[in-house]
Amino acid sequence: MTSQKKGWKDLPIAGVCWIPSTEYITGDWRTFKPVVDTEKCTLCLLCHLYCPDGAIHWNREAEEIEFDYDHCKGCGICAEECPVTAIEMVRE
């Protein structure tokens, strides 16, 4: 991995980001992943509002919420906040 990363001569100074954060995959930090029970879910979208990583999306066509597992770090806030306990944290 190290050999593929930029060295100090090529990196922008001051930690300036040279790729968008969406390309920086943080999903592998996760130990537990959120899984939704679509039967229970009322699509209130509280989970979407609470998610600190913006990793929960509303799929309008499927009328379901979707998790972006590339960026979800498994914090569990969505499961905690869900008023109908439709989200369960499952060990990876």
Binding site: G7, W8, L11, A14, V16, C17
Partner: peptide, 21 residues
């Protein structure tokens, strides 16, 4: 532009090396 964000073991050292330069 983002300056000085989280910079862990994978890049921090390179940024410090730049300061010495």
């Amino acid at each position: 532009l983002t300056m000085g964000p989280l910079d862990l073991y994978d890049y921090y050292f390179e940024h410090k090396r730049q300061q010495e330069e």
